[in-house]
Design a protein around this nucleic acid. Sequence first.
DNA 1: GCTTTTTGCGCC
DNA 2: AAATGGCGCAAAAAGC
Length: 558
Amino acid sequence: MRIIVARQPDGGYLVRPSTPIPGARKDGLHAAEAAALIRRWEREHEPRWVFPSVGHDYPPLVADGVRIGRCIDLALTEYLLLAHAGRHGESRSLSSAYARAKGLPPPLAADSGPADDGDEPTLFDLHHSGLPPGVDPGEAAEVVLLDQEQRIRDLPHPDRMRLLVAAEAASALAAVEMSADGLPWRADVHRRLLTDLLGPRVPSGQRPRRLAELTERVASAFGGRPVNPDAPGSIVRALRRDGVEVTSARAHALRRIDHPAIAPLLEYKELARLHSAHGWSWLDQWVRDDRFRGVYVVGGVVSGRWASRGGAALQIPKVLRECVRADEGWTLVVADAAQLEPRVLAALSGDRRLAEVSASADLYASLASTMFGRTPRGDDRDRAKIAMLSAMYGGVAGEAASLLALLRRRFPHAVSYVEHAALQGERGGTVRSRLGRTSPLPSEEWRTLTGGNGDEETARRVARDWGRFTRNFVVQASAADWTAVFLAMLRRRLPAPAHLVFFQHDEVLVHCPAELADRVTTELAGAAIETTTLVFGPSCPVRFPMPTTAVEVYADAP
DNA sequence: GCTTTTTGCGCC
DNA sequence: AAATGGCGCAAAAAGC
């Protein structure tokens, strides 16, 4: 059974079984009423819920304690299907999808904002649904649902897209629930760390003591002339006055220079970064009751990775992992899909030798022994890693090109897979992930530049740039397929009250009572195996290990 | 003066 | 010979 749940323009809820049950149609419910109804129907029927947008419709329900098993997200599905058809820029809103399904002209109200602006901020404007008069969100959702099912049936691999759509929707549920539950975050530990590193808190706009000291040390290293270490131009000018030629004030450029100001400058940059990005004001704004609640945006990145909005939820610096601590009597189970992307490439390309390499838990060490024909020594492992990253990212600098050539000799199928993707991009074509995520078409500007009427060198450069993008896309987006399915499987398997508290591209944190840690570890491993079978088929020879540790403090995970 | 773009750096 | 992919955010720099 499917039940549509939609927030209405006035903020009320509509809850409606897709196949009508007498008396089951409910409109204009308050969030709390809707929550009670959904809890009951979830218990009695375990339906597949249908949301116009989980990110928009689900949070108020979650705040009321609702947790559902499975659903469809019409907006995320619409995006995947539009992208598959080469129509990335078009609106994924309910009203646009409805208009598309009915063959009506696109609505204006809900679709302000330029088409290439990514996610529409007014995805579901509270006052204008954008639907034609007399059509309510429930009716529109029903139409869109059926239309999408038909479009999926028409694809070359409907089963793959169905899996992707289900996994994406489950990811969206997980994202909302993670925001609501929050990541355990000890504000006292964070404050102590800031004070230790920066000195006592000072009013915003002022430099904490440690930063002020370093500023003076920089100034005296420049002979007493004041230099603003926050201003790249100021640093470059000061170095030039002392006869040091630099083109930028980036840390890696400064590291190459021999000058007494460099050491305090680098230290300043590191601490200033902590202060401005994750200092006291970040703590004030994002941590309450010892929980960090970031907002995750599923479907926010073309490759299928999650984005975040506010709080930089996907960029928590390593030094702050000290603050992430399990509650009393609880534990954090930390797991990451080790070397996910090269394993995904092995599975995608069907390269048998790379699949054999993937049997090893340390893929890069194993790769090195195959590449160099000996037990890895010296920097063999690092060089093997550079070769693999160059294949996936399109690197050519330094030693990368020759290492890549060696990789190509040993793993021709894997390398030709990504090179084919690069070639597609250079020609202005699209590429797809395993489950059917599709890369966007290059911009109109790109077509002009590569059209043959302009500068040849520019044309070559932008073509190569786009080739690097599509080369990476097939791997990154297929890795996103794998992790989306993994999240869906894991979410279903976790025994209450264990719950996901963090997910970052290929890593998950589960917060659970200490006695459940072993069970959670088992479920993580099971979810990884199940995921690999679902995404790459039962005969996939590639191994996807998921090393797992249970810790009290995130920083203690390896 | 305000707004937009660039720079630089954090995460994967 | 060669700019390796994706993102978000704060502050500086540039543009109006």
